[in-house]
């Protein structure tokens, strides 16, 4: 393995002994993949000097928590079971209802689960800073020294493409010789067939 040399690598090496502040954008990122990465940095496991007894965890600032993504219909189908061990203290809540109530709660739980079951996870989770949108207080912003790479590619909307990009893209549709332009116009949906009530159809005739 090639070793990195130079001033930059040397500064980065010394930075590992300090508490770094990482920033990550949660826009269109899977909650659990993102949570794994954030938990890794909270515990300091990305550092070669990591040891379970070494206190080398970093701070992580997660912005745009409200735009975090789940796969498919998971917002509806992922159900959290809360139980506070009291009578009537159980509740099964789908993820989207928690996310509506507090946009930082789902991602907090994902990160907290990924930190593992150990004694220092409560200290690690204290170094997590969650913000629902891009706004954050000044005293947090001036600490940030590193931008983490996102875990997923953010898909581009059709409105985000410029006219030049559209023109440079090859056209795949080839219409036949006798094609009328009117055929591409939107059609009125035929609707559902409503079955007439019993005996009604005969009465009309």
């Amino acid at each position: 393995m090639a070793t990195r040399t130079g001033r930059f690598a040397r500064a980065n090496q010394w930075l590992q002994f300090a508490r770094q502040w990482h920033l990550i954008d949660a826009n269109h990122q899977d909650v659990y993949v993102l949570g794994e990465k954030v938990a890794r940095h909270l515990a300091g496991k990305q550092k070669p000097l990591w040891h379970p007894e070494a206190d080398c965890g970093d701070h992580v600032v997660v912005v745009n928590c409200k735009d975090v993504a789940m796969e498919g219909f998971d917002w509806k189908h992922r159900i959290f079971h809360f139980d506070n061990q009291y009578p009537q203290g159980r509740a099964d809540i789908p993820a989207y209802q928690i996310h509506e109530y507090d946009p930082c709660r789902v991602i907090f739980m994902a990160i907290y689960n990924k930190l593992g079951n150990n004694l220092i996870r409560r200290k690690h989770i204290q170094r997590l800073h969650l913000f629902p949108d891009a706004k954050m207080p000044e005293y947090i912003q001036k600490n940030i020294g590193n931008l983490l790479e996102q875990v997923q590619v953010v898909p581009r909307k059709s409105t985000d493409y410029t006219a030049e990009e559209r023109a440079a893209f090859p056209r795949l549709v080839h219409f036949p010789e006798d094609h009328f332009e009117e055929w591409e116009a939107p059609i009125k949906p035929p609707g559902r067939h409503e079955k007439p009530a019993f005996g009604k159809a005969k009465d009309k005739k």
């Binding site: 809540i93 507090d102 930082c104 709660r105 907090f108 689960n113 989770i125 969650l130």
Partner: peptide
């Protein structure tokens, strides 16, 4: 999933 009641709300989320 098992939800947790433990939550640190450091900054207001709304």
């Amino acid at each position: 999933e098992t939800g947790t009641w433990y939550y640190l709300k450091r900054y207001p989320s709304k």
